[in-house]
Structure formats: structure tokens, C-alpha cells
Computed example of a mutant assay.
Amino acid sequence: MAEIKLATEVRTEFGKGAARRVRRANQVPGVVYGHGAEPVHITLPGHELLLALRTANVLIGLEIDGKDALVIPKAVQRHPLKGTIEHVDLLTVKRGEKVQVEIPVHSEGDLAPGANLLEFVQNTLLVEAEATHIPESTTVSVEGLDAGDSIVAKDVPLPKGVTLVGEEDAIVIQVVTAQVEEPAEDEAAEGEATEGAEA
């Protein structure tokens, strides 16, 4: 995964008022923590951060007090209506270090003929990977699956060096039969009444 560089400044003011001032300047307040170090409060450029976070588990390069740091996003708070980023927690990582992250699961292929629906029980998988080689996502084939079939976590292919964390038999995707809507009883009765009246 490519590393994205972002400019940052250390924050010295805290509280809701300070955070609002940061956001008005199109910046995002954040906290960097990890490796037993004291958390560092920073500000990040809002637009650039928004673009960076479009990539799941993006690797971000920062310069904090003259020192380079590699981080990955751990928690992102967004405005419930605007969708803008309100705050971000970033975890410090090192090259070669393994971290646990959630990666999105996608599907490909066509289901068996018939009125069947694909249902994602889990949209992500918890995996362990090297911090600088976290996959953006993984894709599993659903080709030919029929109603009642399912795919469990251990059946989802993972890139080399990435291992599954958690329950291997947890269902990720299942195929269910589409529900066919039947006419409501009152509508059917109304139809019969109409036919009687016409007669």
C-alpha cells in the first residue's frame, strides 16, 4: 500500500471551543498514540485527510515535532449530517510490525439461476498483516451458489502474509431465497366483492 504524506501541527489548545476553531479553519483535530508513548494531539488538513481516508487502512506519513511517524486510522468520527470528519484517532506503526485491522470483503460472480439474494452477514474481516502491507480489501467468488449456501471466514482468500483473526467458521456471506410478495387478504376480498357487484 502506498504511503500518503500529510502535513500536521501539534495542538496545544483543547476542549470543544478549540476543536470548533480548528474545524472552521478546514482542519481536523486528531490524536496519535501507540507504542507506549504519550498521546500527541495534532491537527490535519481536512480535505487531504478526507481523500486519504477513502482508502481503507491507509498508511499515513506524518512529521510530528520534526520526527517522522507512520500511522494508520483507528477511529474516525464524522458529522452525522454533513459527513465531514470531526475527529480522528491514529495509531503509530513501524515497518515490519504486524497489526490487526478490518478489511472490506467484496464478492464476484453470479449466483445459481433463480430468485436468490446475496446477504453479507459481515462486510469486513479482522486480519493480521504487516503495517506497510495491509490489503485494501479481499474478494471472494460466489459463482454458482444457491439458496442455503454460505461462505465462512476461513473460505475467504487472503493475500500472502495476511492471516485471519477470530472465528474461522463465522458466516461472512449467505444466499437466501427471495421473498415473493403475496396479495394482501383484504385486497383479494375487495376484488371478490367488486366481481360480485358487477354480476
Score class of each variant (00 low, 15 high):
7 A>K: 14
10 V>Y: 05
13 E>A: 12
15 G>L: 04
17 G>Q: 00
23 R>W: 11
50 L>K: 11
51 L>W: 03
54 R>S: 09
55 T>W: 00
55 T>L: 04
55 T>D: 12
55 T>I: 15
56 A>C: 04
57 N>H: 04
64 I>D: 00
65 D>M: 07
68 D>T: 14
70 L>T: 03
73 P>M: 02
76 V>Q: 06
79 H>C: 04
80 P>G: 08
81 L>K: 06
89 D>R: 00
89 D>I: 14
91 L>H: 13
94 K>V: 12
104 P>R: 00
114 G>C: 04
114 G>W: 07
114 G>I: 11
116 N>M: 08
125 L>Y: 06
126 L>E: 12
127 V>K: 00
132 T>Q: 09
139 T>E: 07
141 S>D: 00
141 S>N: 05
142 V>M: 08
144 G>D: 09
146 D>R: 11
149 D>G: 04
150 S>F: 15
154 K>H: 11
157 P>C: 03
165 V>F: 04
168 E>V: 09
168 E>N: 05
169 D>G: 10
169 D>R: 01
173 I>K: 02
173 I>P: 04
174 Q>S: 13
175 V>F: 08
175 V>Q: 06
176 V>N: 03
178 A>F: 00
182 E>I: 14
183 P>Y: 06
183 P>N: 05
184 A>Q: 10
185 E>D: 12
192 E>I: 14
197 A>I: 15
